[in-house]
Amino acid sequence: MRAFDAVGRHMSFTAGAQALTVTQSAMSRHIGTLEDLIGKPLFERGPSGLKLTAAGKTLLPVVNKSLDRMEFALNGIRDEQIETRPLRVHIPPSLLYQNAITLLRDFHAEHPDIRIDVLTSNVTGEPRTDVDMAIVFDRPRVDDKVADLLRLVRVAPLCSPATAATAADKSLEHFLRDGELLHVKLEGEPRCLLWSAYADQQRLDIDTAGGMAFDTAISAARYAMVATGVVLADIDMFAQEIAAGRLVMPYDRVSADGFGYYLKTNVEDLADPAIVLFRDWIIRHFRDRPLDASSL
Score class of each variant (00 low, 15 high):
Tyr261Asp: 02
Arg9Trp: 06
Asp68Ala: 15
Arg2Tyr: 13
Gly258Cys: 08
Val7Ser: 05
Leu291Phe: 12
Asp113Ile: 02
Val131Asp: 09
Thr120Pro: 03
Asp288Arg: 10
Ala221Thr: 11
Asp143Phe: 11
Lys185Asn: 12
Thr228Phe: 06
Phe137His: 15
Pro41Thr: 09
Pro112Tyr: 13
Arg141Lys: 15
Phe214Asp: 10
Asp215His: 13
His90Lys: 01
His90Val: 01
Arg284Tyr: 07
Phe72Arg: 10
Pro41Glu: 05
Ala274Arg: 06
Asp178Thr: 12
Arg69Pro: 03
Ile206Thr: 05
His108Gln: 13
Leu96Asp: 02
Arg141Met: 13
Ser294Ala: 12
Ala164Tyr: 04
Asp36Leu: 14
Arg115Asn: 09
Asp132Ile: 10
Leu96His: 07
Asp130Arg: 14
Leu296Val: 06
Pro41Gln: 04
Glu80Trp: 06
Leu149Lys: 07
Ile275Phe: 07
Asp169Val: 05
Pro61Thr: 01
Lys145Asp: 10
Thr216Trp: 07
Ser48Glu: 12
Arg45Cys: 11
Ile114Cys: 07
Ile282Gln: 00
Met237Ser: 09
Pro47Thr: 07
Gln240His: 08
Gly125Ala: 12
Ser171Asn: 02
Met249Pro: 05
Pro92Leu: 07
Arg105Ile: 08
His108Ala: 14
Ile91Gly: 00
Phe43Val: 04
Glu80Lys: 11
Ala73Asp: 09
Leu87Asp: 07
Leu186His: 01
Pro61Asp: 01
Ala164Thr: 04
Asp68Thr: 08
Cys159Met: 11
Phe137Arg: 11
Leu59Tyr: 02
Gly188Tyr: 12
Asp215Phe: 08
Pro190Ala: 15
Thr208Phe: 03
Ser219His: 12
Leu277Gly: 01
Ala213Ser: 15
Ile31Asn: 00
Ile101Asp: 02
Asp5Pro: 01
Arg253Trp: 01
Phe286Arg: 06
Ala167Asp: 02
Gly258Ser: 11
Asp106Ala: 05
Arg2Pro: 03
Val142His: 13
Val230His: 03
Tyr251Leu: 00
Val146Ala: 01
Pro112Lys: 10
Lys145Trp: 13
Phe238Asn: 01
Cys159Ala: 09
Arg253Cys: 04
Leu87Gly: 04
Lys51Gly: 03
Pro86Val: 03
Glu268Gly: 05
His90Gln: 02
Phe286Leu: 06
Leu34Met: 14
Val153His: 02
Leu59Val: 04
Leu204Tyr: 08
Leu193Ile: 08
Pro61Tyr: 04
Glu83Met: 10
Arg279Tyr: 11
Pro127Trp: 12
Asp257Ala: 06
Arg29Phe: 14
Gly245Asn: 03
Ser160Met: 10
Ile135Glu: 04
Ser295Glu: 09
Gly49Asn: 06
Thr102Glu: 01
Glu241Asn: 09
Met11His: 11
Leu150Phe: 07
Leu34Lys: 01
Tyr262Ile: 09
Ile282Arg: 00
Ser66Glu: 12
Asp79Gln: 04
Asp79Cys: 00
Tyr97Glu: 13
Arg203Lys: 14
